[in-house]
Design a binder for these strands. Structure first.
Length: 800
DNA sequence: CGCACCACAATTTTT
DNA sequence: TTGTGGTGCG
């Protein structure tokens, strides 16, 4: 076989495969065909990222590494070459080189929704073969890996998963047992701190050591909580979200055979939304890609909006350094939006400094201008949206062509109300999630306890729900006994009459544990939907709700019915319909997964939730300083950049039209405030925008008389230093707001020392005007920085 | 023990 | 304005 034959074979093969991907643009095609080694795909919004992922996987399965290899089949012949050149019948076969089996591919996404969309699209392309492929989230991938070998690291294979609400109640429980005040140790803050520690791989012991050497009492306490938290999770055979990642990484690092197994298995690793990965997720990816280093990450640094939960943009910025020889591909052609929308998005994001730099372009028409509407208040803002949608619907648009995006969930109220009044069907995402509703959690808690009775946390939740006469005193006593005997609460309940201190409710406790026992036996021979029915029936849960025929109770019953339908759904779709499998699935399930693109309804969601979605017509409500960008970002350049990225994400959701709205005044916490129009609006080029502003309204004028608008850190500093030198004016005379007659609001300035009723002494480090009030940041010695509203906090503070 | 009412505090985004 | 957590009474 001559060398030139080999060359022409490779060439023909490549040309042939290329011809199979002609529906892609050249950059996309490169991303599909560079199969070997590390690849970084910087994919702008709407640049066909998912298409690339799908086609890349298709290419791997169909042609293996043929497009990125010098190797030719050992039996390559002139005939085969000819077949390739003329695209003959057997060309497909001859072009293929070491095709990949579906189970050798690991494709990681961030949301279940993205994962199932990937799967669905692959299924359409490949048929049932796609089922073998791992297209899942980090968390579910970790669960699968852990289920197999959890015993190596001290868990059983059927460990339970705690969602964030579970973690929070566990923290609260610990605080109680430690006799610590939730005010000093807000559970949320503690959870955040633990989460960060885990991500940085700081163990409780290291954490405590650090705290001790720096004589930090507060950190020492939180360290103890951290330690206890881990301990209790372990006792309950439970892992929280972070543990899933951490333990997987530990497992892979520690056990060579386990690592080998997975590295051997997965020839190709693909990671979506790489800009949102945290340290652990990076380590996980690196471990899985292992020796072959066939890792392809797809992401967009401009769309990194989850820094607050530990995502480090560094991962994507430094990918090229971490993987020398990496090949970088930029996808900048946008297939989603009109020229004007892209122009606006580019203009806004260009105000950020920390980015790789990328400019979206399109060959589409410029399209319609962006509209800015200034409404009188949030009610009118919502009404504007409703009217526009109604008008569009009248012209033949579908409800699902519309989306309303906002910064925070609280904004949805007014919009919901307006849509309701106008009879517009809508779907809302976020807010209290379905699986966070009390009734849903209750029923699931029953199922958890049936699956693993040592789950004290869930047991405690349902021990008296519905009421069965085991009050908090009795529960407390039983918990104490359990702690003394170092065993689970369930064990104590089932042997309650052996303990004197439980004599009063022993009967009821035994009845309860007997019922759980019966459920366990029941579930051994029955499917989960029947177990569900049995639990509802025997606990009388729905029955109790039915007794009071209130709207609330009816919606609760609805929710429980809905839960049943998710169970049935799960049983249909999953090949492992065991109780454990269901519970694991449920913990990782979010509302967004319910999202149906074609449901005939307007979509309401936060900008965060909208990532990855697209809509022909988009409204963004609340384009005001202090809302978007949020108050917390003003004056903080890093956070401001994140807000701006969020704005970029929101703008690029729109395909055809985009309307921005703001209100002259709006109610926040029962108070009317006037905000300045968002700086992001001003960053959009004049020529892209049509301003729909009431006569005689000038936001520029407003801004001069209002402290709602603080442009950057410098101005901010000047603002406060002037205030300070002005010798302690009342906050309210400063902001030009009438002082309350009964007000005993403190007169404060940055630098003042205060004494708070519960937090003791602290120093005011920051004052931010907010509505008719000020947001104070006070650094309390030992506790750290706290944010308080001046008006409210004045009653508990004095100046010292 | 359970329910109703009151007081207070708090404001972001979520796999 | 909203939600939560604590208290006091039946």
């Amino acid at each position: 076989m001559t060398e030139s034959f080999q060359e022409s074979y490779i060439k023909a093969r490549k040309a042939y495969i290329e011809s199979r991907f002609l529906h892609l643009n050249p950059m996309q095609r490169r991303a599909v065909m560079q199969t070997e080694g590390p690849v970084l795909v910087l994919a702008g919004a709407g640049s066909g990222k998912t298409t690339v992922l799908i086609n890349r996987i298709y290419n791997l399965l169909e042609y293996g590494c043929a497009t990125d290899s010098e190797e030719i089949p050992y039996n390559a012949s002139e005939e085969m070459l000819h077949e390739l050149i003329v695209h003959g019948e057997r060309a497909d076969e001859y072009a293929s080189l070491h095709p990949v089996f579906p189970w050798q591919i690991l494709a990681i996404t961030f949301t279940n929704k993205a994962a199932s969309e990937l799967k669905d699209r692959l299924k359409k392309l490949l048929g049932d073969e796609a089922d073998e492929l791992w297209a899942c989230t980090f968390h579910s991938a970790c669960v699968r890996i852990l289920r197999r070998d959890a015993d190596r690291i001290g868990y059983t294979g059927s460990f339970t998963i705690y969602d964030s609400a579970d973690s929070q109640s566990l923290i609260k429980r610990i605080l109680k047992d430690f006799n610590l005040d939730e005010k000093y140790y807000p559970p949320r803050t503690i959870i955040n701190m633990i989460s960060r520690a885990k991500d940085a791989r700081v163990t409780p012991d290291i954490y405590l050591q650090n705290a001790k050497s720096s004589f930090d009492q507060y950190r020492q306490k939180t360290g103890e909580i951290y330690k206890e938290y881990i301990h209790r999770l372990h006792m309950a055979d439970a892992m929280d979200f972070d543990d899933l990642l951490l333990n997987t990484v530990l497992l892979l690092e520690e056990f060579e055979d386990v690592r080998d197994y997975w590295q051997q298995r997965f020839r190709y690793v693909l990671i979506d939304e790489y800009q949102d990965t945290n340290l652990l997720q990076y380590q996980f990816s690196a471990l899985m890609a292992g020796r072959r280093n066939n890792i392809c990450v797809v992401g967009d640094d401009d769309q990194s909006i989850y820094k607050f939960r530990g995502a480090t943009i560094e991962n994507i910025l430094s990918f090229e350094k971490q993987y020398p020889g990496c090949r970088t591909i930029r996808l900048e052609q946008n297939y989603r939006s009109t020229g004007i929308i892209l122009d606006a998005a580019n203009a806004v994001i260009s105000n950020n400094t920390e980015r790789k730099g990328k400019k979206l372009w399109t060959d589409k028409e410029p399209g319609e201008k962006i509209i800015l509407t200034v409404a009188d208040n949030e009610r009118e803002e919502a009404q504007q949206i409703a009217s526009q949608i109604l008008a569009g619907y009248g012209k033949g648009k579908n409800w699902h062509d519309y989306a309303v995006l906002y910064r925070k969930n609280a904004q949805s109220n007014a919009i919901e109300f307006a849509l309701k009044r106008n009879g517009i069907p809508y779907r809302i995402f976020g807010g209290t999630r379905f699986f966070d509703r009390a009734e849903v959690k209750d029923i699931l808690a029953y199922m958890c306890v049936v699956a693993s009775p040592q789950d004290d946390l869930r047991l405690e939740r349902i021990i008296n729900v519905p009421p069965r006469g085991i009050g908090s005193k009795s529960v407390e006593a039983a918990i104490n006994v359990a702690a003394e005997n170092n065993c689970s609460l369930y064990e104590i309940l089932s042997t309650a009459d052996e303990y004197e201190e439980l004599s009063r409710s022993a009967m009821k406790m035994r009845q309860f544990s007997g019922m759980i026992r019966k459920f366990q036996l029941f579930s051994e021979v029955n499917s989960i939907d029947l177990l569900f029915d049995e639990i509802i029936e025997k606990t009388g849960y729905i029955h109790v709700l039915e007794e009071k025929n209130t709207i609330e109770n009816n919606t609760r019953i609805e929710n429980i019915r809905e839960l049943k339908s998710t169970i049935l759904n799960f049983m249909e779709e999953s090949d492992d319909a065991s109780l454990n499998a269901y519970l694991a699935n449920v913990a990782l399930y979010t509302d967004l997964d319910n999202y149906e693109r074609d449901a005939s309804a307007v979509t309401l969601m936060t900008m965060h939730a909208s990532k990855g979605l697209e809509f022909p017509h988009v409204f963004i409500a609340g384009m005001e300083e202090t809302i978007f960008p949020g108050i917390q970002a003003i004056g903080e350049s890093e956070e401001m950049e994140e807000e701006r990225r969020l704005c970029y994400v929101a703008i690029t959701r729109a395909m055809k039209t985009l309307e921005l709205l703001c209100a002259k005044e709006r109610m926040i916490f029962g108070r009317t405030v006037a905000n300045k129009v968002s700086r992001f609006v001003e960053e959009i080029p004049e020529e892209d925008i049509t301003k729909n502003i009431p006569k005689g309204y000038s936001w520029r004028e407003r801004c001069e008389n209002s402290y709602q608008y603080i442009k950057n850190e410098k101005e901010y500093d000047i603002f406060y230093s002037t205030k300070r030198s002005a010798n302690h004016y009342s906050a309210f005379s400063i902001s030009g707001v009438k002082q309350n007659s009964d007000s005993e609001t403190l007169i404060l300035a940055v630098g003042d020392r205060v004494k708070h009723r519960s937090f003791q002494e602290g120093v005011v480090t920051k004052m931010t005007p907010m509505g008719n009030d000020f947001l104070l940041e006070i650094d309390f010695s030992g506790i750290g920085s706290k944010k308080l509203m001046l008006r409210a906090a004045s009653r508990y503070m004095e100046k010292i």
